[in-house]
């Protein structure tokens, strides 16, 4: 059983949805980014998505674009991202919180999929969410990820109809990520009806847990999604907390880490207050 599978089994036993907290690796810099990462499980993040900063994040809205730019400016590389995960596992002794790398395929391709998977696994990474690797192209990565014990989480969207859905689900491991709105990250939110309908539809095709993301910005919205999903993904709203804690020159004002973590805590409370029947 992978760390992701164990975590979802535990959430099911606890009769609640999980919170997946997204941060950009090394945002706003390596030291502060690591402090945020380290603090996430303590404030209730059940799974962590660590964004690999990329120059051309085509599926991301302004919030995640800016977060990635801050990290790139701070010199965050793939190696630095792996090091952060390694350090997290070693220093916190946390062997339960899954960490997924999210990003774009070119960074994987340049290192070589096999090498990338081995190094990620050695660092303590549990899953990949690669936005631009649909089922049609995922074979280039999946065998290496599987061999390294890493779950490849695929995305489904409102445009993924019942005919296509099985092909997506067949390739997804750990859970499946439902992109709840048509669009980029951090813009509009889906209605509760739409989330319920799509999650029910996906669950008719699979026993995999369903994580729901895109556009979820507040503890209240997270709680609504938690009624229907197995996990609630929040990203843009979290990285916006980094942004507001920086001055015009990009220097932290006050306790940036505490501000981000307090917000994640409020999201976790929103999610945890919803008991599943």
């Amino acid at each position: 059983m992978s760390r992701i599978e164990r975590r979802f089994a535990k959430l099911a036993a606890d009769k609640r949805a999980g919170l997946v907290a997204y941060i950009s690796a090394g945002d706003p810099d390596a030291a502060l980014g690591y402090q945020i990462l380290k603090g996430l499980p303590g404030v209730g993040a059940d799974l962590i998505e660590l964004g690999m900063p990329f120059t051309d994040p085509m599926a991301d809205g302004p919030s995640v674009q800016l977060a990635g730019q801050r990290a790139l400016k701070a010199g965050i590389t793939v190696d630095a991202t792996f090091d952060m995960v390694k350090r997290f596992r070693k220093e916190t002794g946390d062997d339960d919180t899954p960490i997924l790398l999210m990003g774009y395929y070119n960074l994987v391709y340049q290192r070589g999929p096999e090498k990338f998977c081995k190094e990620a696994a050695a660092a303590g990474v549990d899953g990949f969410i690669l936005v631009d690797l649909p089922p049609e192209e995922v074979e280039a990565l999946k065998p290496y990820a599987a061999a390294a014990g890493i779950d490849t989480v695929l995305l489904t969207a409102p445009t993924t109809d019942d005919k296509r859905l099985p092909a997506v689900l067949k390739h997804s491991a750990g859970f499946v990520y439902f992109v709840s709105v048509l669009g980029i990250t951090g813009t509009k939110a889906a209605t509760e009806d739409s989330v319920r309908m799509h999650v029910e539809r996906i669950k008719r095709h699979t026993s995999l847990p369903v994580g729901v993301g895109f556009g979820i910005k507040t503890p209240e919205q997270a709680a609504i999604v938690a009624r229907h999903a197995d996990a609630v993904v929040v990203g843009s709203a979290i990285v916006d907390r980094v942004k507001v804690a920086l001055d015009d020159e990009g220097r932290p004002k006050g306790d940036l880490v505490a501000g981000v973590l307090a917000f994640v805590k409020s999201l976790a409370e929103g999610v945890r207050n919803v008991r599943k029947v």
Partner: peptide
């Protein structure tokens, strides 16, 4: 049929766009 010219080409897009 998969849009490849040798190793080049392909369809590296978000799932939302894939059906379209």
């Amino acid at each position: 049929e998969r849009g490849h010219f040798g190793i080049f080409g392909g369809r590296y897009v978000a799932e939302t766009l894939m059906p379209l």
